[in-house]
Structures are given as C-alpha cells and as structure tokens.
Design a protein around this nucleic acid. Structure first.
Lengths: 188, 188
DNA sequence: AAGTTTGTTCAGTTAAAACTGTACGTAATA
DNA sequence: TATTACGTACAGTTTTAACTGAACAAACTT
C-alpha cells in the first residue's frame, strides 16, 4: 500500500520532470532579453498550480526576495507574467500570461519597433549632416564619399521600412491569418 | 580658396556624421546577440569604402587586434559581414553583407529555430517523465498535478509549432511575397 | 630551411551585470 | 497613533563577460 514516503518520492519525480523544462527555458530566454534566473522564475510560476507571492518564489528558488522583485518586474514588462488579485490576500500575486502567442508578439513588437525607430532617427540625422556637408564642400573626394554614404543609408532606410511592415504584421494580428494558431494536438 | 586645413575639417565632419549612425547601431545591435563593441566594428566596416583588414579595424577603433578578431567572427557567424579576397593581399579582408534583409532573416531564423528545437525537445522529455509518473502513481493528488502539467505542456507545444511555421515563412522567403521589399526611395 | 607575416589561443585583468541584505516608504491592521 | 506586513532603492559583494598582451601555429617569402 502507498506510504507517505512513496508520496514524497513521487513529488520529487514531479519536480524533476518540471525542472527539465524549466532548465531549458532558462537557457533560451535570453532571446527575450531576460536573465536565466528570471527564466527559472518564469518556469516556476508556469508550473505553479496557484498564483505565487514573492515570498513563495523566494523560497522555491532559494533566492533573495529582492531578486524576485526585480525578476518578476522584467517578466511583467515583457508581458510574460501578470499580476492577479485575490480577495483577502495583501501580497502581490503573479501568474504567467498563458497566451504565449501574445507574449511572443509583444516582445517581438516592442523590441524591434523600438530599435527600428531609433535607427531610422539616426539615419535621418546622419543624412542631414551629410547633406550639409555636400552643399558646402569644394572637394571632389569628399563629395564622392558623401554621396556613397547617402546611398548606403537610403538602402538601410528601405530595409527598416520593410521591417516596420513586418512588425505591423504581428501588431495587427494579421500574422495569425497567414500562419494560423495550432489548437489541436498533432500526431506523434 | 579651399585649403588643406578645410579638407581636414570636412573629413572630421564626415566622420562625425558617420559616427552618429554607428553609435545608434552599437546601441541596438544586442538584438542580434552582438556586443556594442562589435556593433561599432560593424558600423565602421559599413562606411568603409574598401574592405578592411583586422589591422585597419584595430587602428580605426583604437582596440586590440584580438578584439577585432573575435568581434568580426561574431559578425561573420551572424552573416552580417563576409570575407572577401583580393589578389596580392595576404591579410583577411572583410566587408558588410549588404543585403540587410538576408542578415535579418539569417539571424532571426537561426536564433529562434535553435531555441524552438531545444524547447520542444525538453517538452517531449518532460512529457515522457510525467507519463511514467502518471502510470505508476496511486495518489489522486499527484495524478491531478501531472495531468494539469501535461495540458500546459501541450499548449506550449502548439505555440512552438506555430513559431516553427513563422520561422519557415522567413526561411522560405515567402515573407517577401507577403511583405515586399522596398526598393524605391519614399517621399520625405 | 630560416625568417616574416598574420590570425588565433590562452591567461590575466578590467569592466559590467547579477545578486544579496539592510534600510526605507507605504499601506493595511489594531 | 502605533504596529505590522509588504515591496523596492540602494550600497556593497560576487559572478560573469569583455578586453588585452604575450605566446603560438600556420602559411607565405626569401
């Protein structure tokens, strides 16, 4: 008959299985600009049956509460976890955002949109500086270099416009028409 | 009349303009898993009229040749620069890959494909461990947790299948049918 | 074969990021 | 108002990543 010790052993096994996945997530989550530690945190909250408090996370990972605080904030900003309220509980509770499509899209959009805007801004400024130089220079050599640079920058600009279009594909949700979500389990 | 000093000044200005863009690239290139230093290196090669040697890069950036070597290798692996040969020159020469669409696609594909495969592998293994546990357990509590976990993992699996489809969109080049490249200069 | 030139490996150093414990501010409870 | 519970800022420490110079290996030159 099943003893209390068997139960402990099985919980160990459950933990081991969960850990296999958590460890892998932690290794790859840098793609979301998130540290491996915060990745383990994410995995822990992912498998938790209930939303977790900072203290529970701290205990589960054997790390300081401060780290949990900063870790969960980075996950929050990446829209990978969300805060939930439960009446009677004063502590902050967190659960994972369970729409992974949304998490991916959010991160993808925010990061690339931001970089694209900054780079396009820089291109504009650089172009203006070059155009000034182009007008005032009397040296053929300089003129030639300026013109080559302007061409390069315009090619880069075209690329960024394309990238903006790609980002919009995800932002508008149109990507899901082109590449539909999978909902049923596929055959092994 | 234009003096030698004017020429120097104009070259300074050219350098300043280029630097504006290089600095911005360096700030955002972490999206490609590339360090800011290697980002500056990329920008420097980008504006160079001729393919550059490691020694030239070292001089241009005021950094060690060792750093140039590792930096250029990371750019090479990301398909952002390429090596070119010129007869009579023994040193390695590098220029930027000028198809930025290709660079982006390469990086996007490689990074996400790799992470996706690893994560899907981990999901499979975790599922197998859980299925074993499911068969052997006699505790309702354990059974329930295992089943919840299996459901979560299957949802995650669906997401990764979708992501694989998205990656294929870029890998096959089909993305360019859906979001065409921009080739003409757009209006200001 | 001896001597150069060139890129890379490796050990040590410097710079940056992650993590911790204490202390603090705010809000709930008494 | 005093007390407790909670999350976060901050300063200091530890860990990790970036960078350098010296030594090495491979390939070219003489």
């Amino acid at each position: 008959m099943p003893s209390n010790k068997d139960y402990e052993i099985e919980l160990e096994k459950l933990d081991g299985a969960r850990n296999r996945f958590i460890t892998e997530i932690a290794k790859n989550i840098h793609l979301y600009n998130i540290t491996p530690s915060a990745g383990r945190l994410y995995g822990t909250v992912f498998f938790s049956e209930e939303p977790m408090t900072l203290d529970e996370m701290s205990r589960a990972l054997g790390m300081s509460k401060t780290s949990m605080s900063t870790g969960i904030r980075s996950l929050l900003e990446a829209n990978m976890v969300e805060r939930v309220w439960e009446r009677g509980i004063r502590k902050d509770l967190y659960k994972v955002e369970d729409d992974w499509y949304k998490s991916f899209s959010n991160v993808f959009i925010n990061r690339w949109r931001n970089a694209t805007e900054l780079n396009m801004g820089a291109i504009q400024e650089t172009k203006e500086m070059l155009l000034h130089l182009k007008e005032e220079t009397g040296f053929d050599d300089v003129l030639e270099k300026v013109e080559t640079d302007l061409e390069k920058l315009e090619e880069a600009e075209n690329y960024y416009i394309w990238l903006t279009d790609v980002i919009s594909l995800f932002e508008s949700g149109k990507i899901f028409e082109l590449v539909p979500k999978r909902t049923k389990k596929t055959l092994k």
